[in-house]
Simulated scan of single mutants.
Amino acid sequence: MNDPLIIDGLHKRYGDLIALQDMTFQVAPGELFGFVGSNGAGKSTTMRIILGVLAADAGRVTLGDRPIDLRTRREIGYMPEERGLYPKMKVGDQLVFLAKLHGLSTSAAEDSMRHWTARLGIDQRVGDDVADLSLGNQQRVQLAAALIHDPRVLVLDEPFSGLDPVAVDVMSDVLKEKAAEGIPVIFSSHQLDLVQRLCDRVGIVSRGQMRALGRVDDLRARDGVTLEVAGPDVTTRWADGLPGVLGADYDIERRTAALRIDPDQVDDQTILATALRAGPVHRFARSTPSLTELFREVVA
Rank of each mutant, 00 (worst) to 15 (best):
49 I>K: 02
129 D>Q: 14
216 V>I: 02
140 R>N: 13
248 A>S: 15
112 S>M: 07
87 P>V: 07
153 V>K: 09
180 A>H: 11
59 G>T: 01
276 L>M: 14
144 A>S: 13
273 A>M: 05
43 K>T: 01
135 L>M: 14
114 R>Q: 15
64 G>H: 09
122 I>R: 09
45 T>V: 03
162 G>F: 09
111 D>E: 15
33 F>I: 04
20 L>H: 10
165 P>R: 06
92 G>Y: 02
34 G>Q: 05
230 A>K: 15
255 R>K: 14
61 V>D: 06
131 A>P: 00
125 R>D: 13
188 S>E: 02
290 S>H: 05
90 K>G: 07
233 D>M: 09
230 A>L: 13
186 I>N: 03
235 T>C: 00
94 Q>E: 12
52 G>T: 10
53 V>Q: 09
175 L>W: 08
190 H>Q: 06
279 G>D: 05
43 K>C: 05
106 T>R: 15
180 A>L: 10
23 M>G: 01
268 D>T: 06
112 S>N: 11
13 R>W: 09
235 T>F: 00
235 T>P: 00
37 G>H: 03
208 G>I: 02
248 A>M: 10
82 E>P: 08
79 M>A: 04
138 Q>H: 07
206 S>K: 12
259 L>R: 12
154 L>F: 05
278 A>R: 06
139 Q>R: 15
166 V>L: 14
